[in-house]
């Protein structure tokens, strides 16, 4: 089983860190194989950026995404740029306040979380990436929440550790409660427009 994940957004949103934390959680604590790569360029804060993460039960040789199974987008630009690579039936996770998908075409499962808004409620919008990671864990289960909790210490400043854990929990809970609601409705929000 090889899952190809792309975390995307704007420079400064902590996108690369998301990839690092998820990869660390998967490889060091879920004991899977994980390879994280990122596009390096002269890009400054504010431009589209992404981290690619492969999580696999087998050793990872080819380290890049060929078909995106999961796309996480925290900006409109990034979503526009990477959505065409999402496979049919793939999973899209977006920050619902920052990405508007009404005019999208394709076939994928879409999930929304107000990650940045929750982060602002917790006191700092920079925690948006942690909210998103919690949500990602709840929705995809590619990386377990327990492992995330072990991977976060050491990856964020020690003095903000609790806040980061709160942010993760907030996103995770949002995902779980959304899942329960959806079970009741018996269908995930699937966009199918051709």
């Amino acid at each position: 089983m090889r899952t190809e994940i792309r975390f995307s957004g704007l420079g400064g949103q902590g996108i690369i860190l998301s990839g690092i934390i998820a990869g660390k959680a998967a490889s060091l604590f879920d004991h899977k194989h994980a390879t994280m790569t990122q596009s390096f360029g002269p890009e400054a804060r504010g431009s589209a950026c992404s981290a690619q993460l492969i999580v696999s039960d087998e050793p990872v040789f080819y380290p890049y995404i060929t078909k995106t199974h999961v796309l996480v987008s925290m900006s409109q630009d990034a979503c526009d740029k990477f959505l065409p690579d999402l496979i049919a039936g793939g999973t899209l996770l977006v920050d619902e306040d920052l990405v508007n998908l009404r005019s999208r075409s394709g076939s994928f499962k879409m999930f929304e979380v107000p990650a940045t808004r929750y982060a602002e409620e917790l006191g700092n919008r920079i925690l948006g990436n942690l909210v998103m990671l919690g949500y990602f864990s709840a929705i995809t289960r590619t990386v377990s929440p327990e492992s995330f909790k072990k991977a976060i210490p050491g990856s964020v400043p020690q003095r903000y550790l609790d806040l980061n854990i709160h942010a993760f929990d907030r996103g995770f809970e949002h995902g779980i409660s959304q899942g329960k609601q959806k079970k009741n409705k018996k269908s995930a929000k699937v966009i199918e427009e051709r």
Partner: peptide, 10 residues
């Protein structure tokens, strides 16, 4: 090479 240098793994 740049790929290996900037690739993150266990």
């Amino acid at each position: 090479d740049e790929c290996v240098g900037h690739m993150t793994e266990k």
